[in-house]
């Protein structure tokens, strides 16, 4: 019963994920694309929960769906949802080249997966209930991965300063 339920949830979340992913790149109006991305992020959070990554699922909703997408929607409301023709990027040669490249990438990944599936991907490791808990992740962040933690904070600081710099209009420039 439990296994079946997990499969059902997995199918629903994966279908929502892929469906909204296609929707993001297909809509003409960027506002709908952004809303589809929010759906994508939420379904990804469900997938993370199924992979025993509960802190990351909550962080995904908090950071990505809750803050980054709000930023996006702000800018979209400010700029007005100017619709462009969806699949009109570049000359036809470029378009076909892009599709070929994406398909090639996909085929390559699927081949690698197929090769690895039989041998290496069959038995996931046994994990305790504390796997993916905030305590365990926090411990790693301040011991093994302290450098990454500190550098991320500096990156965020630089981004905040950059955002302010990009946002201020200098007095001499007539923008309106």
């Amino acid at each position: 019963m439990a296994g079946f339920l997990v499969w059902v949830i997995w199918f629903a979340a994966a279908a929502a994920c892929l469906g909204t992913g296609v929707a993001v790149v297909s809509f003409a109006n960027p506002f709908y694309s952004a809303l589809s991305l929010i759906g994508n992020l939420a379904s990804l959070a469900v997938l993370y929960l199924l992979l025993s990554a509960e802190f990351l699922a909550a962080a995904q909703v908090l950071v990505y769906a809750g803050s980054v997408m709000v930023m996006f929607l702000f800018v979209l409301a400010y700029l007005g949802g100017r619709a462009d023709a969806p699949w009109a990027g570049g000359p036809p040669l470029l378009r076909t080249a892009a599709i070929v490249a994406a398909v090639a990438l996909l085929v390559e990944i699927v081949v690698v997966l197929g090769l690895a599936w039989g041998d290496n991907l069959s038995d996931p490791a046994e994990v305790t209930g504390a796997f993916g808990s905030p305590a365990a992740i926090g411990e790693l962040l301040v011991t093994d991965h302290l450098l990454a933690f500190e550098i991320t904070s500096i990156v965020l600081l630089v981004a905040a300063v950059g955002g302010v710099v990009l946002g201020t209009t200098r007095e001499k420039e007539a923008t309106e």
Binding site: L18, V22, V24, V25, S33, G89, A98, I109
Partner: peptide
């Protein structure tokens, strides 16, 4: 993998920088 491919198509084919 499928999601990555979709995103890659979007980056290469859409014109609006927001998308």
């Amino acid at each position: 993998a499928l999601l990555f491919g979709t995103g890659a198509l979007g980056v290469m084919l859409r014109r609006s920088p927001l998308i």
